[in-house]
Nucleic acid binder design. Sequence first.
DNA 1: GGAACACGTTCCGTCTAGTGGACTTGATGC
DNA 2: GCATCAAGTCCACTAGACGGAACGTGTTCC
Lengths: 246, 246
Amino acid sequence: MIRVLQRSLAVLECFSDEKPRMSLQEISQAISLPKTTTFRILATLVGAGYLIQLENQSYGLSHKLMTLASIAQKSLGIRDIAHPHLEMLASKTGETAEISMLDGDYRVCLDAVESKSSLKSIVTPGARLPLLHGATGKVFLSRMKDSEIERVIKSQGKPTEVDKARLKKALVKIKKQGYAVTQNERVRGATAIAAPVFSHDGNAYCITVTGPSGRFEDREEKLRTMVTEAAAQLSSLLGMRLGGTG
Amino acid sequence: MIRVLQRSLAVLECFSDEKPRMSLQEISQAISLPKTTTFRILATLVGAGYLIQLENQSYGLSHKLMTLASIAQKSLGIRDIAHPHLEMLASKTGETAEISMLDGDYRVCLDAVESKSSLKSIVTPGARLPLLHGATGKVFLSRMKDSEIERVIKSQGKPTEVDKARLKKALVKIKKQGYAVTQNERVRGATAIAAPVFSHDGNAYCITVTGPSGRFEDREEKLRTMVTEAAAQLSSLLGMRLGGTG
DNA sequence: GGAACACGTTCCGTCTAGTGGACTTGATGC
DNA sequence: GCATCAAGTCCACTAGACGGAACGTGTTCC
């Protein structure tokens, strides 16, 4: 493995949304390398156009990365892009994480990373499930037109009018807050937290974390944040348009 | 300057929309380096997660680049992103290239790269111009609502009803074909070719190439393609959404 | 106004680590 | 089963990356 390359990539990676521009010193500290070495790497990256040097001598990522990313995006499927995020989410939460999409009036699981705990939720990629139960389904429902919701209720549910009103109220809330939490809905003893993901081409996906309710109670808010953040990140990546003059 | 780094970046750059996945051999040929050296670079890039290796042993750009690009996008303004494209367009066409955006009922030039010819169009970044004359203005108009167009005509023009009908017909055509070409409109003896650029956040821009009509006649189609392609590329880059759960 | 400091940038002798030709492995085809 | 081709490994060689020290410039603080 090439050391300079790893170091150089570390340089690129030390930029973040919070710190999009950094000075030589900051960077050399961030990657724990002498100034000289860092400087040489920076000079090369600037020369190649991957970094730009700003007036105040600090450095920032440049447009060339966007060009590459646009190529990457085209050649990758949703699973390729989502998988590392699911990995991260599963490891951070310790629970099972999955991504699903709408398929007609059902949702289908595209990919999942299972919890490492022996007590865990098992989800099967490829599984096609109804929308009326579970957090994932509710997230999708919350984005559908009223007429579509009616149709789903009609075909999948057996609700009284009271249930219907309650469901619709819940959906409005879910849409507004940007996530759904359910307990004992699809699987007894399980809790699920789901958040929507949007891509440039209008497709919507849903990221969900599921596990035994007992492990959710005292950290629901933290888990919720992790799920919505992962969803936001994915949305950000998928939001890249693929070209065309519009 | 670090040689390995430059070589490694060359590896990344040899991927393209046309060829998003490449084999070791193809890459080593593309960058004219021995297989061994190329292999080591590839292994490092795969290890760092910037490339992925597919089933058929070929390589492709990976999602990590998208993460970086998303950071780059946030820290860059439209000018930073557009400038290299204007440079390229100006050098490929030999004419002056500019990017502008709407500002109320006017258009304002954000950035320009001038032709190297001694006979050239001069455009001034920052200049605020009416929409009714010139290809750029027409591109913007073509995307506006009818009521807005009426307002612009009322405030900027002195047209008979005939002119108005002709203009609107032209705008429909421009919107449909995705570019505008004008001659002798704003500047006598000058031709302009303009194409729209769209970004994720709903902002619209316009890329324009202008120069003496005599240099446009026999290569208008070629120039048109260059302008629309540059616009499409920019749209692609700007289409990257900046996050948020939607 | 000058001294001390901070930070980017350049220089250069040292020796690490990147290089690439030769080799192995493994798959495909006749 | 042998030939062919490409991916991947090995290793001696030396190019070139490394980083401590020096330099230059701009800023702060007595």
